[in-house]
Amino acid sequence: MISRLQRPAALIILILAAVVIIYPIYYAFAASMMTSGEMDSFPPHLFPSSLYLANFKLVFSLVPVAQFLYNSFVVAIAITAGHLLTASLAAYAFAFIRFPFKAFIFSLFVATMMIPWEVTMIPNFLTIRNWGWTDSYWGLIVPFLTTGFGTFLFRQFFLQLPKEIFEAAKMDGLGHMGAFVRIALPLTRSAFATLAVHSFIGAWNMYLWPLLITNEESMRTVQIGVTMLQFEEFTSWNLVLAGLTLMMLPPLLLLVFGLKQLVGNVTLGALKG
């Protein structure tokens, strides 16, 4: 289909694009394995001369990277679990249960995707402060346990399931709770995986909210911790980048293993609503 000349040309463009796109990530990984001498030399090194891991050790001793990582994991996992639970339950109700005001409530869920988060930020900040939830996991997690996007995603998947299964289950005396746990959830594992990857990455990336409600070092997430690295006494870049590398690894690994889930499913919730 593509002519003989086009194919190599396209390949060259793709390789160039790949190099440009991967470069900042590569740079962070490479520089984190360089010694200070290598970092300061001119012309700059493009590759680290050896697998030098002392920066990682040093960064662990200078900044509580382990604490930041732990905080981010707690927050991201809790929010992901919350999304999976609240979204799948709500989606089941919209797909299979008859109740009054369904259309109206559904439109409320649509509206949640229209309100930019910044509009609710100031009152949410005041609420969390009034509840004494600043510098706590509660404050970082609880405001984010629901998701309009996830509800749509699950609803799309539920609506694609054959109705007959549910009718048969009803005949056998299975209630909604039973049908939800034993039929709907097991049949929509890919929606689960998609939303899990999406929510985890989203929660891991949160920046402005943790910046607002955490002050204590022990409650900071990696996103805020990383800017702290920058402002610490040492501005040695290889150390900053070593810290960064450690913090970037979890979502990157998740992408490598979860890419297949994301391709194909990421648009489902949004496009076919």
């Binding site: 796109i21 991967i22 990530i25 990455i201 891991w204 990336n205 920046y207 990696v222 996103q223 805020i224 990383v226 800017t227 960064l244 913090m247 970037m248 979502p251 990157l252 998740l254 992408l255 994301l262």
Partner: peptide, 9 residues
């Protein structure tokens, strides 16, 4: 890949 890089980082 950039989908997995937190914007802060």
């Amino acid at each position: 890949s950039s989908i997995a890089i937190p914007i802060g980082n």
